[in-house]
Measured scan of single mutants.
Amino acid sequence: MTSCHIAEEHIQKVAIFGGTHGNELTGVFLVKHWLENGAEIQRTGLEVKPFITNPRAVKKCTRYIDCDLNRIFDLENLGKKMSEDLPYEVRRAQEINHLFGPKDSEDSYDIIFDLHNTTSNMGCTLILEDSRNNFLIQMFHYIKTSLAPLPCYVYLIEHPSLKYATTRSIAKYPVGIEVGPQPQGVLRADILDQMRKMIKHALDFIHHFNEGKEFPPCAIEVYKIIEKVDYPRDENGEIAAIIHPNLQDQDWKPLHPGDPMFLTLDGKTIPLGGDCTVYPVFVNEAAYYEKKEAFAKTTKLTLNAKSIRCCLH
């Protein structure tokens, strides 16, 4: 018999989150649709729960009410004593943790798909938090293969000092899905179709896995975050240069030392320094102006996964 890495157990509980950011409308629209008619997301033997994560922000069509829901799922915020004085999103995070967690427990949901849009030209993107997770690498390989020839990129946010504390991190297997470009507060049919297909293929993978299909060893190309880059700023902290036209919409493309990065209003080009080629992502993302992030630098690498098969009882 072929030796293989056996994944822990079959997958039982899956959640699909929309509206973690209330103005990213593809996930909101799909989740609302699936709450009314969820036939397309159901798979035999699998509990799939669509869920609106930040209903107040969705109602106002804004990213958040008090603070970013997708950055506060750490033990400090989840452990705060519940009171009306807490920011709305912290209270909501505790409610979500109660419903789908608790985080880092045996009772937490197996998989959470968190649906997002970006204003950046990132196409279909899967966000991975753990480079050693054979199950998710296999799932992402399946999704990428199923979507081809449509490109699907994998963004690895594993980093020693950049801690995200994402909404989906309460699950055993957290999956971020990011599709763009799409303006905030807008629905685009092409973007919706791409996100819908990503979810379909992900659920198909889980179904095949649960039925005992063995997935042979595989490898995927990923883009691992190195650092986030702020806009150049003046002495008052105001933005002093904008994304250069040569960099705009060039997510995932190589940016070499000396290539144009920013452009000042008086026409001066600010190039990339250093001696390493990087791959920019979230270029000129609207939501990241407040976070002082013009783009993120990534490096390209390959992740390998062992063969996996479900432990059938």
Rank of each mutant, 00 (worst) to 15 (best):
K253Q: 10
P151R: 06
T2E: 08
M122A: 12
L312N: 08
A305S: 14
L99F: 14
G45I: 03
G101P: 09
C218Q: 04
D114A: 03
E235W: 07
Y223N: 07
D266N: 12
D66P: 04
L265C: 15
K144C: 09
I16N: 00
E8C: 10
K228A: 10
P174H: 09
C67I: 09
E290A: 15
I137T: 03
N23P: 00
T62P: 05
D107W: 13
I270L: 07
E24H: 13
F262I: 00
F282L: 12
Y164N: 12
K163S: 15
K49I: 10
I137A: 03
E95W: 14
G185V: 01
P217S: 10
K60C: 11
N304W: 10
D114T: 06
I143Y: 01
L265D: 04
F73S: 09
M82V: 15
C124E: 02
I225R: 13
L25D: 12
D249Y: 01
T166H: 12
D190R: 03
P181I: 00
K172T: 11
K253R: 15
C152P: 00
V222C: 10
S105Y: 08
K144T: 11
L312S: 15
I137E: 01
D130T: 04
S105P: 15
D249Q: 02
L187I: 11
L30F: 01
Q94K: 11
A15L: 05
L86K: 11
A165T: 10
L30Q: 03
P55C: 08
A39W: 14
N37C: 13
G101V: 05
S146A: 14
E211P: 01
I220A: 02
D68C: 06
L255W: 05
F205Q: 00
V283L: 13
M195H: 05
N134H: 11
T298P: 00
N121R: 06
G45A: 10
H21K: 05
D193Y: 14
Q194W: 12
K213Q: 13
A148M: 13
G176K: 13
I199M: 14
P254M: 05
F51A: 08
H98R: 13
E95K: 15
L115P: 01
Y289R: 12
D275S: 10
Y88Q: 07
D204K: 00
V58S: 08
L126T: 01
I157P: 15
H244I: 00
L301F: 13
T269Q: 08
R233T: 11
T302V: 13
D249P: 01
K300V: 08
C124K: 02
N77S: 12
L192Q: 06
A7N: 15
E221P: 06
D234F: 15
V283G: 03
F51Q: 05
L35D: 11
C124G: 05
R92S: 13
P271V: 12
C152F: 00
V14K: 00
L35P: 00
L115R: 02
K200M: 08
A296V: 15
N134K: 05
P149Y: 04
D249L: 00
F205Y: 05
R309S: 11
G79C: 07
I170Y: 10
G258D: 10
E8L: 12
P245W: 03
K163C: 13
R91E: 13
L247I: 10
H159Q: 09
C218A: 06
W34H: 01
E76M: 08
F17T: 06
R92F: 05
S3V: 10
K81I: 13
S120C: 13
N37G: 07
T2P: 11
V31E: 00
C61H: 11
S108Q: 10
K306V: 13
R233C: 10
I111T: 03
H10Q: 14
N70A: 10
K49H: 06
P87L: 15
M261S: 06
I225H: 09
P257S: 05
V154G: 02
V48G: 02
G38A: 15
C4S: 15
I16Q: 02
H244C: 02
Y288S: 13
A286R: 12
T44Q: 14
A240P: 00
T299K: 10
E76F: 12
H116A: 10
I6V: 08
T145E: 07
V186F: 01
L86T: 10
Y288V: 07
R92I: 14
V222R: 00
I65L: 11
H21E: 05
T119W: 01
L156P: 00
E235Y: 14
G185I: 02
F215C: 05
I157R: 14
Y153Q: 10
M139N: 00
C67F: 11
P260Q: 04
N117K: 00
I270F: 05
L150S: 13
E24R: 02
D249W: 01
Y173K: 11
A39P: 07
K268T: 12
C276M: 13
P257W: 01
G79H: 11
I112G: 03
N246E: 07
F140R: 00
D234G: 12
Y164L: 10
C4T: 12
E211V: 07
P183V: 03
V90F: 15
H256R: 13
G258I: 06
K60P: 06
H207C: 14
E8R: 07
F209H: 04
N246S: 07
T44F: 15
I177R: 00
T269L: 08
P181K: 01
A240M: 13
E238P: 02
P232W: 02
E211M: 14
